[in-house]
Design a protein around this nucleic acid. Structure first.
Lengths: 185, 185
DNA sequence: GCCAACATGTAATGAGTTACATGATTAG
DNA sequence: CTAATCATGTAACTCATTACATGTTGGC
């Protein structure tokens, strides 16, 4: 089977909730699925154009006061079908490439200090993420969410993120301790 | 900064331990870093050619008995320098794209059964991985490993893999239970 | 006048994936 | 003879990233 453009489904999924411009889509992605899925303008605009050509979304030119005009994209009935078909199917096997693990695997070829440094950077990164998760969580509770079902799914992914970052931090810390203990011996 | 080809470092790293042909490299990668880093022939052969052109590896034609001839690649002094420079540096920020999480986030748009199905598939995948980790672990202990330092790093990444898969399985199971409980209400 | 935020795109490049194509050698 | 494994590559294509390019609007 040929590879599918996954960007389209991320965009369509967000548009299932609300119509957005390309610029707004980027922000919406950052604030919702951003910690496990990211998109750049370099993908968003071309993919929106191709989705429109296929009739999966439609655009509307909107004049704004106090801001530049924009194109608002809405999902069409065909788009909803296309998206639903994808979301029901099993996820593809995820091909991962974890550069930190690759460097740690080859850690024998650099100093213990360099290894510890890498692990510390990873810890900071995930501590930062954990703070972001709290922001998203409060964002979720303060906003008006008429649909409790949607919220349930959002909290599930948030829960995953928290577990993932916590696990990573714990692993990094234990590895650093391993290094420090073996240095004492 | 421009993007770096990471495949080259995976190959150079393996060649730090031992000289291999392209075909053997693929196998060595699968059996060592395979669960967090994969490469296909479509990348391996072209990258080996470009590494040779840059003088980072050298190849030798080897005739074999009972098997077709092959090219054995060895890392050069320049290659060792190039690799060491990379391995000492911090890992780049990892851009993740987790399709299962994306589908779960949009889980409101398909049936609970479809969601449970996806989580079950993920569980099988990681249970399979956990078995593989045991294989790698026994592979590591039965083989003659003169260098205990190398082994330490391999076990670190293995430990990460085990934690990651265990965490994922636990999360999936709890999410399935959530679904089943809310169905009872 | 200038900066920040809003807003939309294109072009160049490089990386990754899949399919294709070929051939050697051994075991059954 | 045939299948499996060993072995090396190329071509076509898609995808993602980065840099570039342009323009609006409001606030200081």
């Amino acid at each position: 089977m040929s590879r599918e453009n996954k960007t389209q489904f991320a965009l369509l999924g967000i548009l299932m909730y609300q119509s957005f411009s390309g610029y707004e889509l980027k922000k919406a992605i950052n604030y919702s699925i951003g910690f496990f899925w990211s998109e750049d303008y370099g993908s968003i605009y071309p993919v929106l154009a191709s989705l429109e050509k296929k009739g999966l979304v439609k655009k509307e030119y909107v004049h704004q006061e106090k801001k530049p005009s924009k194109y608002i994209y809405s999902i069409t009935d065909t788009g909803i079908k296309h998206f639903s078909e994808w979301v029901s199917r099993d996820a593809d096997y995820e091909k991962i490439r974890h550069e930190l693990l690759l460097k740690i695997f080859f850690g024998h070829y650099c100093s213990v200090e360099d290894n510890i440094e890498k692990l510390k950077t990873e810890i900071s990164f995930h501590e930062n993420l954990l703070e972001k998760y709290q922001e998203i969580r409060s964002h979720l509770s303060e906003d008006s969410h008429p649909n409790e079902s949607e919220k349930k799914y959002w909290l599930m992914t948030l829960d995953y993120g928290i577990r993932y970052s916590s696990m990573t931090i714990k692993w990094c810390e234990e590895m650093i301790n391993n290094f420090k203990e073996s240095r004492k011996e």
